[in-house]
Design a protein around this nucleic acid. Structure first.
Lengths: 154, 154
DNA sequence: CTCGATGCAAAGAATTTGCAGTCAC
DNA sequence: GTGACTGCAAATTCTTTGCATCGAG
């Protein structure tokens, strides 16, 4: 997603909520989009501070919450206990493939799975709102490493 | 799952790890199994204390970790930020259907989805370890309630 | 100007850990 | 008896909040 696009969406959201688009807010948002990764609040704070040293953690948390409320980012509570944020705006739903060794996080989509999930909701009398699917395993490169001598895992 | 079955599995695990099956440990485990629900550590602690008032939180956390390591219970980091534990021993994998209104949590299985997930792993060069699928929506009874006058939701 | 937003540091919530005493083996 | 386990409370970690000050409109 482009920075400009994100900025437009963010500003639209802020305006709609009667919120100000303050400099720190935009700086956090821009750093987040520029990172293009799934970051924790702390990681984002470190990144933001590289360019804007004065910005505090609280602002990062507050801005992430705003962006989440505005649909600009998603919040992922992963199994390892961390909470990561991902850019969402203008993007379709996707699931996550996560390497338990190196932490690599890939976005994946499978329309067939999505369709079956919809049926599952219906079968149980639920109205779907959203879902999350996280697939944990070892990625190709970690598999190679674990095949190499000296490194192995159960 | 029966309490006896759980106790056997738990004691087997403890023995295998050269751990002692102390009274507090078994009391926590029994309360957990007896509850038959998806509990948070704090909820379990409250429950345990009803029968065994002397038991501290730390023991509950420690025992949950043990049970998790022993495969007796699963740990669910839900989107609302809570961490819940569910009895697992002797049970097959399942996914979760969660009502965002009343918090109801149902266990569901769909073999077709499972199969597709396996393919997804393979397609991306991963070796599967485990996965989680959580489906969030409104359950039948909450849907009825929201249809009733006076209560509505987006 | 007027409030909302910020940064700091202190408060909270959830979980872990250190330690002296207790208990299983 | 001995070393692991326990309960307590203090420590950690992650996140939120209070408050004086700053800045957007």
């Amino acid at each position: 997603m482009s920075l400009l696009e994100a900025r437009r969406i963010f500003e639209t959201y802020l305006a709609a909520q009667n919120l100000k688009h303050s400099r720190p807010r935009l700086q956090v948002m821009e750093s987040f989009i520029a990172a293009g990764e799934h970051l924790t609040a702390e990681e984002l704070h470190r990144r933001v501070k590289r360019k804007f040293p004065h910005i505090g953690v609280a602002t990062v948390y507050r801005t992430l919450k705003l962006m989440h409320a505005g649909g600009l980012c998603g919040e992922l509570k992963l199994q390892d206990g961390t909470t990561r944020y991902e850019a969402l705006c203008g993007r379709d739903h996707h699931d996550h493939l996560i390497c338990t060794r190196c932490g690599r996080l890939e976005e994946v989509v499978d329309p067939d799975i999505e369709a079956l999930q919809g049926k599952l909701f219906k079968r149980h009398g639920y109205r779907p709102q959203w879902h999350r699917l996280e697939l944990y395993g070892l990625c190709g490169s970690c598999l190679k490493k674990s095949a190499a001598p000296g490194t192995q895992e159960g």
